[in-house]
Design a protein around this nucleic acid. Structure first.
Length: 437
RNA sequence: CGGGGCGUGGCGCAGCCUGGUCAGCGCGCGUGUUUUGGGUACACGAGGCCGCCGGUUCGAAUCCGGCCGCCCCGACCA
């Protein structure tokens, strides 16, 4: 993208409404603009980040055999009356009527719809198990939206739903999903810790929240250093092996981890002092098993091996995709701006042409831009070098290729790594090689 | 939803208490000169029915009422 022709409205000053660092930086870097309380427009650079994250989530869901689909944002009230949640959900649900006076709602989640879809089409246990998921906008009419995209009313979420013939199958899918989640967050450069969460009416130990560590996180978290040592790469655990999944699940759930509200000092004291870890965290995912709650209330049953109908066991699994953008920034930034982990950066590199109009600078910059293509943001604006440096740091591109008259004369450019601040002068070819283009 | 605060050019703010030559400052934006590796300097310039509606008054950004929007603390949450 050529910056001179891009809608990337960076701000020198922070708008008054933004309090937390990710919100300020997202506004300042021109990633988002607020449209209404808790509702944001994703501008080109911000949208790219959203897409990078979405893609990682998608790949890891696909890897455990989940099927991607797309359900509507609007749902009929009727579906929710069946499960009894229409009344139960409260004012957080945005309700409205169409021209025929039919009651509709903007979906905050999709359990009812998935259950309905399955009951329409799946008749036998032989068609199970299955997992479906979609990445779709949700709306929860929060009384008090805040923290930018971290707590918006409209948000992008990945929600998956598993359907199994029995509890054992459901447990297996639950564990698969936990593994997929750990891999997903790791790929984004985040340290995530699963923590036991309230399981509601089902009970048991099958509900976990995924907290990522960030110095400015919303809640205090306590955990065992063991979490830092677990290798959950494909080499360590096979997501299709029940034995591996059980071993993995055990590793993940046998160590102490809790947020401040559930913190148990007695348990905490049992951990060796040098293994106690304390920090702040942000919830970015939640998975849970809810058995036959919806299949039973909504009349979804399939024929079993004995020919008799039964209600399948289900679970649902969410990841706050848009919230992750804010969470990643909370976990990775400095005074100057965002520091994107490579896998989620909107652009792999920025090309800073320090002297637009200078034949040597223009020539080198264009050459680099042609080589990098869509993965680069070419700052071809007729601006002062200082402005370009500041904006590049603010935008947080992993790499900056600085093309200035000083080096251009001898065919050299400077390569800066955003995270470390390291710079080195080299040829354009060498710079491209280092970036890995 | 309870408590608090704020709406004045794109952004950050002053002015309001003590109505009238108060529509102003910084940044940004445009033009020119200047500068040329970390938000350059100077000059000139464009840009605002002071959130909306109504009231008081000779006169309202300023006082009064209503409404709308936004933010913060709390309760609540991916």
């Amino acid at each position: 993208m050529r910056l001179s022709r891009s809608l990337v409205p960076t701000l020198k000053e922070t708008p008054a409404e933004a309090q937390i660092v990710s919100h300020r930086l997202m506004l300042r870097a021109g990633l988002i603009r607020q449209t209404a309380a808790g509702i944001y427009a994703w501008l080109p650079a911000g949208f790219r980040v959203l897409q990078r994250i979405t893609q990682i989530v998608r790949e890891e869901q696909d890897a455990i055999g989940a099927q991607e689909m797309l359900m509507p944002t609007i749902q009929p009230a009727e579906l929710w009356r069946e499960s009894g949640r229409y009344e139960g959900y409260g004012k957080e649900m945005l309700r409205f009527r169409d021209r025929h006076d039919r009651e509709l709602l903007y979906g905050p989640t999709n359990e009812e719809m998935v259950t309905d879809l399955f009951r329409q089409s799946v008749r036998s246990y032989r068609e199970l198990p299955q997992i479906v998921y979609h990445i779709q906008w949700k709306f929860r009419d929060e009384v008090r939206p805040r923290f930018g995209v971290m707590r918006g009313r409209e948000f992008l979420m990945k929600d998956a739903y598993s359907v199994d013939i029995d509890r054992d199958g459901a447990v297996l899918n639950y564990r698969k999903m936990m593994l997929a989640y750990m891999r997903t967050f790791r790929r984004m450069g985040l340290s995530a810790i699963p923590m036991a969460a309230d399981t509601g009416p089902i009970g048991g130990d099958l509900s976990h929240e995924f907290i990522i560590l960030a110095p400015t996180g919303e809640s205090e978290v306590f955990y065992d250093a063991a979490f830092e040592e677990i290798d959950y790469s494909p080499a360590a655990f096979d997501a299709t092996s029940a034995a591996d999944l059980e071993r993995f699940f055990h590793l993940m759930t046998s160590h102490y981890a809790a947020t401040d509200e559930k913190h148990d000092p007695a348990q905490w004291e049992k951990i060796a002092p040098e293994r106690r870890r304390q920090g702040r965290g942000i919830e970015v995912g939640h998975i849970f098993y809810f058995g036959t709650k919806y299949s039973a209330s909504m009349g979804f049953s399939v024929a079993g091996p004995d020919g008799k109908p039964f209600h399948p066991e289900m679970g649902s699994y969410g990841i706050g995709v848009s919230r992750l953008v804010g969470a990643i920034i909370e976990a990775s930034h400095d005074e100057a701006g965002i520091i994107w982990p490579d896998p989620v950066a909107p652009f792999r590199a920025a090309i800073l042409n320090l002297k637009v109009g200078d034949p040597a600078c223009d020539g080198l910059s264009e050459r680099l831009y042609a080589a990098l293509g869509a993965s680069a943001l070419y700052d071809d604006r007729d601006e002062r070098p200082g402005v370009k440096f500041a904006d590049a740091d603010l935008l947080g591109h992993p790499w900056q290729i600085i093309v200035g008259p000083r080096g251009a004369a001898s065919g050299k450019v400077e390569l800066k790594r955003r995270a470390s601040g390291e710079r080195e002068e080299l040829s354009p070819e060498a710079a491209l090689a280092r970036i890995g283009a």
